[in-house]
Write a protein that binds this DNA or RNA. Structure first.
Lengths: 193, 193
DNA sequence: GGGCGACATGAATCGTGGTTCATGACCGGA
DNA sequence: TCCGGTCATGAACCACGATTCATGTCGCCC
């Protein structure tokens, strides 16, 4: 896939940004971890910020791929699809500890890209919600975009609390169960209004 | 209240951190905006990081005060209390644009304090949820801490999307309505399981 | 074999900005 | 009025790290 050195740099950068933070990681350090000299970094990226943007796009692709795969592999009700998607998301987070910190920090380094990240993700959710609304599994009166941002906010905070703060890595089953229950009940079409 | 110069510095710092970001704001700049010379800054705070911590604690106090006031002023069901609390929160956010960015960025400058911030906030929510559970207004099987983090995640993301990304400042009424509906239905005690 | 171009290298450069400190202004008391 | 001490000032200091570049190395073609 493309340039192996570029790949190495991306991997090294993601790891360092996740372990420490963007501001605490140096270009020389990234290059060294990728097995390159400091100056060689600039043969692949224009600046330190530039590689952050590339890392961010890569993470976005991975998250979307993983979730899409899990979702398409799950034929079933909206509730089941939701669960499959979240499970895939939490699983990815646990395998690459700290990646999510990288995304968050990007807000203060490359706000435009950060926003693009979440808007892209939201678009995917919105499509899913709309389909479920057509099938009558989610209340038609709810704004799909609001639902999308509630999804993302919940995933974000539960991941932070139970995957990062607690050493574990994976959000515990019972926490996820509570989330799914809360969402299912919250979204389903209801009697009155 | 205490030292007026210290207050001025806190106000200046919060404003600058909110407008730009922690890393893009200089100590000299903060001091200047507070009407002080660069060196005088260190008569009040030990370091730049130190003032961020102080700003964070002040914001935390404000958020909790505002929400507590709104909640105690609202006698009623959990749904009404919830709404009052969130409304107060969104209102505060709209009056001090960008404060929430300051909180978020703190994660990468003073992680311990950032965590303390959310854990303190969560404790407050947990107490509220437990009371509502006793009164039978929230499903007794839900872990109050999970609910607390879903609350915070939703508030965070909706605030970011509709108060910051959209120029407005205040999260629109219909977005809030969707959130309240989703939470009320999601939390209420249910038939089966 | 020699010359050339492309790439790798890492030490030196350069800007930035947090922190320090020598200096001066001010004020209360003797 | 003079003295000592406290505080304000902002220029200088200093460390740090992103970026550059002069030099060396390698592989290819004539």
């Amino acid at each position: 896939m493309g340039d192996p050195q570029r790949q190495d740099l991306l991997i090294a950068a993601e790891a360092l940004f996740a372990e420490k933070s963007y501001h605490e990681s140096g270009v020389a350090e990234i290059a060294a971890r990728a097995g390159l000299a400091t100056g060689s970094f600039y043969r692949h990226f224009d600046s330190k910020k530039d590689i952050l943007v590339a890392v961010l796009r890569a993470i976005n692709d991975d998250v979307r791929t993983v979730m899409r795969d899990a979702i398409t592999a799950t034929a079933g009700s909206q509730a089941e699809v939701e669960r499959a998607g979240f499970d895939a998301f939490f699983d990815l987070m646990s395998k690459r500890p700290g990646v999510y910190r990288v995304v968050r920090e990007a807000e203060f380094v490359a706000p435009e890209v950060f926003r693009e990240y979440y808007e892209t993700l939201a678009r995917g959710y919105v499509r899913g919600v709309q389909k479920a609304q057509v099938r009558g599994e989610i209340d038609i009166d709810l704004d799909p975009e609001v639902v999308a941002f509630v999804y993302m906010g919940a995933g974000y905070f539960l991941g932070m609390r139970w995957a990062e703060w607690t050493g574990g890595g994976l959000v515990p089953e019972d926490v996820r169960a509570d989330l799914y229950r809360l969402l299912r009940r919250g979204l389903e079409p209801g009697e009155s209004r």
